[in-house]
Every structure is written in C-alpha cells, then in structure tokens.
Simulated assay, not measured.
Amino acid sequence: MRILGIETSCDETGIAIYDEEQGIMAHRLYSQIAVHADYGGVVPELASRDHVRKTIPLVKEVLADANLTPADLDGVAYTAGPGLVGALLVGCSIGRSLAYGWGLPAVPVHHMEGHLLAPMLEEDVPEFPFVALLVSGGHTMMVRVDDIGEYQMLGESVDDAAGEAFDKTAKLLGLDYPGGPVLAKMAENGTPGRFKFPRPMTDRPGLDFSFSGLKTFAANTIRDNEQDEQTFADIAYAFQEAVVDTLAIKCRRALEHCQLNRLVIAGGVSANTALREKLATITQKLGGTVYYPRPEFCTDNGAMIAFAGMQRLKAGTSADLTFKATPRWPIDTLPSIKTTK
C-alpha cells in the first residue's frame, strides 16, 4: 500500500510518497524562507500563493523520483489542520481534487500527529506508551501517547511557543528570519554564566509552559548591556539554556508523573542540539531513551503526513469532498487507532 502526503500548513510545501513495506520512497520540500525574510515573519497571503504555485510541480517531481504513476497509489493524505487557514485550504483542495480525479480515498491528517509520529520513520521506533514533547514555532505541548490517537494532553504553552520565542529573541538580536537556528549557532560562542535567565513556570506544579517572559527578559538584557558581538552571543547562550532547561524540567516531571521512561521529541525545535543532549541525559538517568526524527523530518514535511496518513488509511479513515480545513484542532480529539494488544 502506498500513499501520497501533502503538507501545506504554514511556510513549507512538503510532498512525499510512503510505502507500507519500503518506507519513504521519495520526498521533496520547498521552503518559503526567502519569500518571508524581508517581512521578518510569515505573511499568510504570500504563504498561500506560494503553496498554489509549488504543490502540483512538487507532486509531479516526487512521482517521477519514485518512478510511479497515480495508478500506483492507494490514497492521498493532506494536512487538514491546525495551521494557517489559507495555506491549509490549498493543501486540502489539491489533496481532495487529486484523490477524486485519481479515484483514491482522501485522508485528512492532523499536523501535530504527523510530527508526533515522525520518529517512527526511523529504524529505532519507540514503543507505546510514551511521553511526547511537540515543540515548534507554533506549538509547544506535552502529550501522553498510549497508541495512535490515544492522546492525553499533559501541558501546553499559555502564550508563545518555544520556537516562536526563539525567533522573536533572534529578531531582538538583529538576526535574520528564521532566527531560531541562527540564535542556536550564535549561542555556541556564548560565555556560560555571564547572564542568568529565569526558568518560567518551573517553580510551581503542572506541565504548562510560558516563554513570552523570556523574550521580555532578553529585550531588557540587550537594552542594559553593551551592543557588541560577544554580549549578543552570551545573551543567546543564556536564552537557549533557559529554554532547554525549562523544557527538560517539564519533560522529567511528565515522565515521572506518567511513570514512563520513553520520551519522543518532535517539531522544528527538536533539531536543537543542546535540547537533544539535555533530554538524552534526563532519560538515561531514568533508565529510558529519547527518540526523535532525523533533522530533515523535524521541520514541516510531507513524509510525516504520508506516514500518519497511511496509519489512518489502514484504519479506514477518509473524507468526502465537503471536508474543510481546521485551523484549530485539539490533538486529543482524534479517534483512536488500536495498534497494540
């Protein structure tokens, strides 16, 4: 069984083909960074227009890469939400239209479920149950996962997501968009201990997150100190350390609360090296393991949508042509797929 995956939830157009036996047969990703860089952030209308321009050509390229035709497919999966409504509508419209034209089932996929399941594209696959930290520019959430679709929300950000805080702080430091990876690179030259940032919401019970205060703290620190390269590197180091420590503290708390020692981390921020190292240390102390996708599958991509769509297709999920994009869609409302006994 093979399925085409289409990802258009924000500013990246991702297309992939997943085969149940062979795995990912082909995947392509087009990033809109150059389109939005001049604006310092994603412009929804421009994102939608670029998805219209790139989706069909990428579908053709992926089919050619895999040496397949539409007749070789068994379904079309597309991101139905959450995300930017205009961008989602492009993927939904194209996905459903291709499915209709090719006589295939159309499978709506939850964007964050795609991220959550992305580590299962790797050779070392986590077993259920586990705790998942989903951390990106738009979302930061902690979820207990007992099976595909059996999700219990443990905590989420009450304001800025971690990736959003990275990008906003990078902008304060004068870094180009998207600033998160650039800030992480700058932090490598930072001096440990020069600045001390707070670890928000770690001094109280619970698993919710808050990162907007760190951005404000960074702005005040920048204002009150010399505006030179080393100072900026030291601030970047302190900011990243605070975010990583906060996420790590909450992950440890979640694992202990659930009495589990398997941790999955996914989403764009999961590519951060400092975060991976910190979480590896924590899970090792608990006698467990941390799982994450390869860097190219951390950001938005079609491979994760194809994989998640395959799981849903095998369970009988499909949508008629009236299915609409869902920009707000709680992950814990998804139906369960029983894959474990």
Results as ranks from 00 to 15, higher is better:
S48R: 12
A66E: 01
A254D: 02
I33L: 11
A238T: 07
G14R: 02
F197W: 09
L98S: 05
S136P: 05
M141L: 11
D146T: 11
R144N: 14
I24G: 05
G40T: 06
L89W: 06
C251R: 03
D320N: 13
R194M: 13
A66D: 00
G14N: 02
Y151A: 03
K341D: 14
T55P: 04
S9L: 07
D176A: 15
L4I: 12
A77T: 07
A218M: 05
L117R: 06
I337E: 01
V59D: 03
A161Y: 03
Q230N: 10
M304S: 05
R2I: 02
Y18W: 10
D320Y: 09
K171L: 08
P70T: 11
V135W: 00
P105G: 00
L134M: 01
R53E: 10
A77S: 13
L46K: 01
F297H: 14
F209E: 07
D72K: 04
F307E: 10
A80Y: 04
A66Y: 01
D124I: 08
Y291S: 05
Y78W: 05
A325L: 06
S97I: 02
D50R: 14
G101T: 06
L104M: 07
E61W: 09
G40H: 01
L172R: 11
L68Q: 03
K250M: 04
E277N: 15
V182C: 01
S210K: 05
T322D: 12
L89S: 01
G41E: 02
Y151C: 06
T169N: 06
R262G: 07
T231C: 12
N67T: 12
T333P: 08
E21K: 14
F197Y: 12
G190M: 11
G83V: 03
T216K: 09
K171I: 05
M1Y: 10
K215E: 12
A236L: 06
P126F: 00
L286N: 01
A34K: 10
G83M: 03
D228L: 11
T273P: 00
K278Q: 15
A26L: 01
D203C: 09
E156D: 13
V125H: 06
P44G: 06
I24R: 04
V62W: 08
G41I: 03
E296F: 12
I33R: 08
Y177I: 11
W102P: 07
F239M: 08
A34D: 10
G267N: 13
A34W: 02
P70C: 10
P293K: 01
V43D: 00
M25Y: 00
W329D: 14
R252V: 09
C298M: 12
A71S: 15
L117D: 09
V182W: 00
S97W: 02
M186R: 14
E12L: 07
G213W: 08
